[in-house]
Amino acid sequence: MAIHAAPAASRTAAAPATGAAARPARRRRVDATYYLFLLPTVALFTLAITLPAVMGVVYSFTDSIGFGEYRFIGLTNYAVLFTDPAILSSYGFTVGFALVTVLVVNVVAFLLAIGLAARIPARAALRTVFVLPMVVSGIVIAYVFSFLFSTALPRFGSALGLEALQTSLLANPDLAWTAIVVVTAWQAVPSALLVYTAGIMSIPDEVYEAASIDGASGWRQLRTITLPLLAGYVLINVVIGFKNFLNAYDVIVGLTDGGPGTATRSVAMTIFSGFQGGDYAYQMANATIFFLIALVLALLQLRLTRGRVAVR
């Protein structure tokens, strides 16, 4: 969301400035009140986000354990980082997980949005039900699903004599990630659904009316009207979703705690382990790399979505 607000803010801030340069005579005096309104936010953001982030980057070049004395050790942390199989496998898992989850979330959310756009009974009620998972905290969802996977499903499997269901999905090193995808998707579908619903509602009815007069079938309308006009929304959902799923943490902690073994350890979990384990500077280097990746994604998002979203 913050990334979203940023371009808008910088654009409005930039516009008067260029205007002022071109026509100084018509320069409008900006009421000081606006700056005063901005001040607390800017101060808080600097103190709580920017400053710690910069300090974190500085610490990544040291051997600090989080307190006390430390030395600068140059790029050692980074050099070790790129040869650490634990770190590399956490990146592999996280990126793969994020890609699959983005796909699942968007397909499901898109289909639900199309379904909910139809004039079906109890549409409003259904919409509310589908959005509910969004308001429950991730860790709570994870514990509930953990119970389902470890207790309810195996019991169900035994009752039906289904071999495959009798062992928890979470205990299978090769398949535990699918459980995490399911739970994350369950939680993430609502927000994607809302974006798609908004997109569908913004398509004027006249377009569809004209299409049906021309004899276009429902499928044809979906393919040549709805889909192209929603392309911008798909892009937003994919990029934002991917960025969020890269930060996967609470759902995994609640479901598998990175296990079985280290099969489902995400980058965020690895970074956090550094604070408790005294590996502070090393994981700060990891966090810096991770931040750069997120930054590239954010810039990519800005580039791709500029213009697209304001398609009408």
Binding site: P173, D257, G258, G261, S273, Q283
Partner: peptide, 23 residues
């Protein structure tokens, strides 16, 4: 073993079938 080495997770992988030598 320092917490930055996920020993408990390694042990979990051992009892669920990972190769002891590799772990």
């Amino acid at each position: 073993v320092p917490e930055s080495i996920p020993l408990h997770n390694y042990v979990q992988s051992l009892v669920t079938g990972a190769d002891p030598d590799t772990v």
